[in-house]
Structure formats: C-alpha cells, structure tokens
C-alpha cells in the first residue's frame, strides 16, 4: 500500500511543479487596449480534432477569390490541395487550379523568362513581386503572408487560463484572433481619431488597421448551400489558414493518440515489473 501511495505523490508533485513552471511561457503578445477575442468552436481543436474538408474547400474558395488578391502564401504549393489531411481535392482538381494560374519560369534556352500554366509542384503565385510593391499598393502596409499566419497570431490568455489550457489542450488562440478580426470592423467610438487611410477594428491592437473590411455578406458564392454570411466566410477561411499553417495537424493528433496508448500500456507493464522486482526490498 505504501508503495502505491508514494508512487502517486511522487508522480503528482512534479506534474504540479512543472505545470506552474510552464505557464510562465505563455506567449505575451499583448493586444494593447484590445478586448480578448472570444473562444470559438473549431473542428480541429482537442485531442481528436480534424479539419472539416468541406469547410477547408470553402475556405480555399474565399482565400482564392478574396484574400489572395493582396496576401501571399509563399510556402503553399498547389499539390498541397490534394494531400491527405487537407481539403482533399482530387489530383485532377488541384491540377485544374494550378493550370488556371500563369507562373513565371525560365530562363529558357534563349535566356528569356517565360510564363506557363501552373503545375502541381509550383508554389502559390504571390500577388506582388516584392514587399515594396505590396506596400505601395496597400497604403504603406504589408499584407502579411498567410503561410504561417494562423500560428503567428495570439492574445494573452492571462492567469489562470494559461495553466488550464495545458490540460484542456486549447491552442486555437490564433484562429480565434483571426476570426475576431475579420468580424471586428466597426464604426470608431466617439472621440477616437482614426489615422488617414486606417479602419477601426475592435480586435486589432491599437484598433487602427490599414486593411479595409476585406469581406462582407454575400460576397462569395458557395456551391454547397452553406450560409453566405461574413461570419461563415470568416470561419471557413480561418480554418483554411490554420490548415495552411499546420498541414499535418491531423496526422499529429492521430499519431499522438497511438503513442499515448503505447506509452501508457508500457508504463503500466514497467510499473508492475518494478513492483515485482522490489517486492522483497523495503524502501
């Protein structure tokens, strides 16, 4: 009996100590003066979370028709559209998307650059040739690249939430923030002076964002009957951005569960072996 007791207390105490120690790492990207984005329900959250393929396909449509006109995604390739764990387009569909874009290639044998239809192996073409060109067309602001954006945004959770997040595995602060931002455009409150060329957003740090409201109700026509509302567009494109930032999320959680099962069984076997080995030795 005493073995079991000491086993329990010796295991729980480091956990508690460690839990305290980790929390200190909570990302401290403060959104000065901005309210905390509400927590949303995401299909990819939690230990068994997976992407909703239809949602990713809709999100891709929003990205392609709206966001991609200003935002690049230079780590994203056409072939990703057909890879497992993503929007699950067929290879033919992904190829058709690729071919609908002209991609610069070269130099050819004559030393000239030339345009050709895109291939699966091509990266997503950027809307601007360089950052300066992007800034020049967007009032001096650089539309951030989408490749890792969903993991590059967060908000401060604060105590004790950041400790609870370890146990609930809540990691969706980035998508929460992006969704909140997309639906967070408002009229500036009384007395708020908005700088020239900026727009008021409830969730943007400092509230003055250069990006005008990018999308509104009815702007994109869905073919699957999903509501054509700002809220739905925003959720769909946010899920798509999360997949773009973490394309192997589903594999990670699936393998994680298998590893956990293995380790827990292994630990159990070791525990009883250890008990047997130490049976005749008081300690």
């Amino acid at each position: 009996m005493s073995t079991t007791m000491s086993f329990r207390s010796t295991l729980l105490r480091p956990l508690a100590v460690a839990a305290l120690a980790f929390g200190l790492a909570a990302p401290a990207l403060a959104a000065e003066g901005a309210p905390k984005p509400p927590r949303e329900e995401w299909s990819f959250a939690g230990p068994f979370g997976t992407f909703d393929q239809a949602q990713l396909q809709r999100g891709f449509q929003v990205f392609k028709e709206v966001c991609a006109s200003c935002h690049a995604a230079h780590l994203f390739s056409f072939r990703n559209l057909a890879q497992p764990g993503g929007p699950s387009f067929s290879e033919a569909q992904a190829k058709a998307v690729a071919e609908s874009y002209q991609v610069q290639d070269g130099p050819n044998d004559a030393g000239d650059m030339f345009d050709r239809p895109g291939r699966l192996s091509d990266r997503w073409p950027s809307p601007f040739p360089n950052e300066q060109a992007a800034r020049a067309s967007n009032g001096g602001a650089y539309p951030p690249d989408f490749s890792t954006l969903a993991k590059a945004r967060t908000y401060e959770v604060g105590f004790p939430g950041f400790l609870i997040d370890i146990f609930t595995q809540y990691q969706e602060q980035g998508p929460d923030y992006i969704h909140a931002l997309l639906v967070g455009y408002e009229e500036p409150p009384e007395g708020f002076t908005l700088p020239e060329g900026a727009h008021y957003n409830k969730y943007f740090p400092g509230h003055a964002i250069k990006m005008p409201q990018p999308i509104s109700d009815g702007q994109v026509t869905y073919s699957d009957g999903s509501p054509e509302t700002l809220d739905q567009y925003s959720r769909d494109v946010t899920a798509f951005m999360m997949w773009m930032a973490e394309p192997h999320l589903e594999a990670r959680k699936r393998i994680g569960f298998q590893v956990m099962i293995f380790l827990i069984i292994f630990a159990g076997l070791l525990y009883f072996t250890k008990k047997k080995v130490w049976k005749d030795v008081a300690h």
Binding site: G256, L263, A267
Partner: peptide, 21 residues
C-alpha cells in the same frame, strides 16, 4: 507521457507565436 502530451497536442504552447513571423 508528459512529453508526448506537449509534443502531440500543444506543441506550440511553450513557444512564441511571434517566432512564426
């Protein structure tokens, strides 16, 4: 097991979002 919890379920918890920029 403790390691795997972070590794597979909250791999970016101990890092900084800014480092994805």
């Amino acid at each position: 097991i403790f390691f795997a919890w972070f590794l597979f379920y909250i791999p970016n918890y101990l890092g900084h979002a800014d480092n994805y920029i």
